[in-house]
Design a protein around this nucleic acid. Sequence first.
DNA 1: CGGGATCCATTTAGATACTG
DNA 2: CAGTATCTAAATGGATCCCG
Lengths: 129, 129
Amino acid sequence: MIRRQVIDPAFPQCPIRNVLARIGDRWTLLTLLVLDAAAQPLRFKELCQALPDVSQKMLASTLKALEADGLVQRQSYAEIPPRVEYVLTDRSRTLLPLLHPLVDWSHRHLDDILASRLRYAEQQAEAAE
Amino acid sequence: MIRRQVIDPAFPQCPIRNVLARIGDRWTLLTLLVLDAAAQPLRFKELCQALPDVSQKMLASTLKALEADGLVQRQSYAEIPPRVEYVLTDRSRTLLPLLHPLVDWSHRHLDDILASRLRYAEQQAEAAE
DNA sequence: CGGGATCCATTTAGATACTG
DNA sequence: CAGTATCTAAATGGATCCCG
């Protein structure tokens, strides 16, 4: 028995598709965690440095998506040189406590999962002979 | 201050990249939830039907990735016609309780998030004039 | 400094047809 | 039934240059 309203992809406003798909993308979750760990507003450049291999383009589009969803707030100051800071919102602060257990789970199970992947790859290689 | 070991993408075995990136893809989480909701082994075809718009190709590769990570177990029976069933594992059963709050959160905040997106899009349209 | 615009390489997804 | 193979379309990611 499936809880269709919650997980049915045919349900026009399937929450999983609309919400989790976004935090599941490559940089969104990482960005939220960096802001959370910093516990203070961060500038574009600081975020860029905290995520060593994000490109400016991807960080910019990630931040725009987060801002559109009301998960970060963008504060721009009319200064020279310009300064823009990003902060978590009340909405994202209700989300982060749910994300931490997931991060911890990943951390705890990483070694086992990597071992499983290796074993699986070996089995596939054997079967191919 | 950033908990580097946990979230640093430069950390060679960054758990977020290795684990969460995978469950964050388009079908993985949905597949796990369907198996969880079913509470019984499901055949390939049943999964295909539970996820109305997944293609065979995507379901097959999703299941292979889940199997490689030890998050589902594949049981194939030597029958004619062939029968293959997929079940959750002990490992994924420790993960699912962490996923449910996330699904609930998405469900509760979906309307607000969609409204935020709309407002954001309108503001962008205005600014473009 | 904080991006936007553009171009290009790579990856990913889907449709269709086919097989053990 | 449970997939694989192949081809194509589309989305994603990165590099570079430019601007307020």
